[in-house]
Nucleic acid binder design. Structure first.
Ligand SMILES: [Mn+2]
Ligand SMILES: [Mn+2]
Ligand SMILES: [Zn+2]
Ligand SMILES: [Zn+2]
Lengths: 147, 147
DNA sequence: CTCTTAAATAAGAGTCATTCTTATTTGTCA
DNA sequence: TGACAAATAAGAATGACTCTTATTTAAGAG
C-alpha cells in the first residue's frame, strides 16, 4: 500500500512525454516513478542510487539526462543550490524552499508574497526579467537548537 | 589617472586585514586592488588572469583563497550563480543583481523592497532564517531584442 | 636588525558534479 | 516487420574548485 495512488500522475507523465515526442522507455518510467516516491528533493546521484536497485544496468548519465529532460517539459522542477548539486522536485505546484545549511535538507513552504514579487519599474523597463526567485537559507527544525 | 582615488579604500582594506590578524602580503594587496578596479563581478579565474599580468608567479589557488578570505572578513561580497562559478563584488553596500542568461553579465540595482523581505511568521517560528535573497534572471539591455 | 614561528604561498594532485563522445540498442511508425 | 531517429551505457573529458606538501615570508620578540 502506498501513500496515494500514483498511477494517474504516471499516466499524465506518459501523456506529456508523448505530446513532446519523447519515447517512453522503461528507464524513464522507473526514474519518474522513483522521483514521485522520493522523500524530498533528491540529487541526480541519489536518484541514480535508488533507480539502480531495480535497474542495475542504468547509467548515471541516463538518470541525469532524463531528469533534465523532464524539467524541460515541465514535469519536474529543478531546485538549484548555491555550491551544491541540483535537486529535483516532483512537486511542480507553486511553492518555495528553505535550504538548511546544516543538514542540506530543503523544506517546502507556501507564501503568496514570494510568488508575486514585483519588479521595480525602472528594472522592468531596462531588462527583460525571465524569472524571480527568493532563496532562504537557515536551519531547519531538527538542526536549530531546539526552541 | 584613475576613475577615483582608491587609496582610502585600500587603506581601509589593510586596516581591516590587520584587525583580523591577516598578514598584508603583496599578493593580497594586488588582488584587492584589481578587484576594486574590476569592471564588474569577475570570477576567481578572471581575477587570476588579471593579477597574473603584474604578478606572473601567483597561483590560482592563492587568488581564489584570498577572495574567499576577503569575503570572510566582509571586505567583498560573493555573488553565487546557479550552475556557474562564483562572482566577486567589491561593492559591499546593500544592492541586488540581475543575472543576464545570455551574456552572463551581472547588473546591479537598488531596491528597497528586496532589502527587507518579510519572512512569513509560520516559517520564522519553525526555522532559524540566516539569509534571504532575491535572484532575478533575464536579459540585460544589450542582450534583449532592443525596445 | 636578527630570530622565530605561525601564516601564507606555489605547484600540482584530487574531487565533485556534471557534460560529452562513441558505439550499441530500442521505441515508434510506416 | 523493418527503418531509423532517439535513447542508452560506458567511459573520457571538463570546469570549478579544494586539498596536500614543501617552501617562503610577514610580523612580533628580543
Ligand atoms: Mn519543493
Ligand atoms: Mn554588485
Ligand atoms: Zn537541517
Ligand atoms: Zn546580457
Amino acid at each position: 500500500m502506498q501513500k496515494y495512488d500514483s498511477e494517474p500522475r504516471l499516466q499524465h507523465f506518459i501523456d506529456t512525454c508523448r505530446q513532446h515526442q519523447l519515447k517512453i522507455t522503461p528507464q524513464r518510467v522507473a526514474i519518474y516513478r522513483a522521483l514521485m516516491d522520493s522523500d524530498q528533493h533528491p540529487t541526480a546521484d541519489m536518484m541514480y542510487q535508488t533507480v539502480r536497485e531495480e535497474f542495475p544496468s542504468i547509467s548515471f548519465d541516463t538518470v541525469n539526462r532524463a531528469l533534465l529532460t523532464f524539467a524541460g517539459i515541465g514535469m519536474v522542477d529543478v531546485v538549484e543550490v548555491f555550491g551544491g548539486p541540483k535537486r529535483f522536485d516532483p512537486d511542480i505546484d507553486d511553492h518555495h524552499h528553505l535550504h538548511c545549511t546544516a543538514c542540506g535538507r530543503i523544506i517546502d513552504f507556501d507564501h503568496e508574497g514570494y510568488s508575486h514579487l514585483e519588479v521595480p519599474a525602472e528594472i522592468a523597463r531596462q531588462f527583460k526579467v525571465i524569472s524571480k526567485r527568493v532563496v532562504l537559507k537557515g536551519l531547519c527544525a531538527t538542526c536549530a537548537p531546539e526552541r
